[in-house]
């Protein structure tokens, strides 16, 4: 991590669409080094869309607003340069890449950052032990035939090795059992104590038992409708999003139902 340097990720008025349909309607968020910002919101609110747009995933169109890292316009950069600039994404559903080995990708990723890949093997082994990832998976194809929990441990390991300035966690906790969640959340918390800024998207407060948020933001229909202290998480856990769904709450009812489905699916 970048030690005691202070960096800022600033999202201003971000509007974006997917397949011609506007999903984000002006998102504002600022994260600084060492801070953990929780982003919560009902299914379909646009949380994954936000993470995709920040990283430049194909298929998403930016309609307005800015995203800067220490003043550098990230939206003007291709994905790989955003990563090299210090932004990292842990995906909700990490992509399987047949035949491409984790260690080969991380070696290339380090080299493109001007870092040496010497000692990568040792670093990988140490991180795998720390995060509880079976070391055999270090030399296997990315995410292919991995369980949900193994995929997220693998994602966390990549974050640990690449040492970005900012990480977006898109439901790091989904699909994880209690042990895996603790291991992954602890690792991110340690990184954040060393200076990593975190945008943690989640539906459940259990992530925050290890990863301590500084702020909580509620995203509804592509807007941040409320921001507050970590106690907000407990309130949401108790009362749900009803209060934040606004005047069109009727229309939003299906969204709420699918949120319940999500709970039952666990």
């Amino acid at each position: 991590m970048s030690g005691n340097e202070r960096h800022t990720l600033e999202i201003r008025g971000l509007e974006a669409a997917v397949e011609g349909k506007q999903i984000l309607f002006g998102v504002d968020l600022t994260v600084s080094s060492g801070e953990v910002h929780a982003v919560m919101g009902p299914n379909g609110a646009g949380k994954s869309t936000l993470s995709a747009v920040l990283m430049g995933r194909p298929g998403y169109q930016v309609l307005g607003g800015t995203v800067t890292l220490d003043g550098v316009d990230l939206l003007a950069l291709p994905t790989w340069q955003r990563a090299a600039a210090g932004l990292h994404l842990i995906m909700q559903y990490p992509t399987e890449v047949p035949g491409v080995k984790l260690d080969d990708v991380l070696a290339e990723a380090l080299v493109s950052r001007g870092r040496s890949a010497n000692g990568l093997e040792n670093l990988l082994r140490a991180e795998a032990a720390r995060i509880g990832l079976n070391p055999d998976l270090l030399h296997r194809a990315l995410n292919v035939d991995l369980s949900g929990g193994e995929k997220k441990r693998n994602e966390t390991l990549q974050l640990a090795v690449l040492e970005p300035k900012f990480a977006i966690l898109d439901e790091l906790d989904s699909g994880l059992d209690i042990d895996a969640l603790r291991d992954c959340a602890r690792r991110v918390e340690a990184a954040s104590n060393a200076g990593l800024g975190v945008l943690a998207i989640t539906h459940y407060s259990r992530l925050f038992e290890e990863l301590k948020p500084d702020m909580v933001h509620i995203l509804v229909k592509g807007r941040v409708v409320a921001s507050g202290s970590p106690e907000l998480v407990d309130e949401l856990e108790r009362d749900g999003y009803a209060k934040y769904l606004g005047p069109e709450a009727e229309e939003a009812a299906p969204t709420k139902r699918s949120s319940l489905d999500d709970l039952f699916a666990l």
Binding site: M55, G56, R57, P58, G59, P78, T79, W80, A83, A84, H88, L89, M91, P94, T95, E96, V97, V100, V105, L106, E108, A109, S112, R113, L142, Q158, L162
Partner: peptide, 18 residues
């Protein structure tokens, strides 16, 4: 697959190397 490409690029790997 553009998703595979994106995954590698999101790790900081250039398009050619990906």
């Amino acid at each position: 697959d553009p998703e595979q490409r994106f995954y590698l690029e999101s790790r900081g790997v250039s398009p050619e190397i990906a």
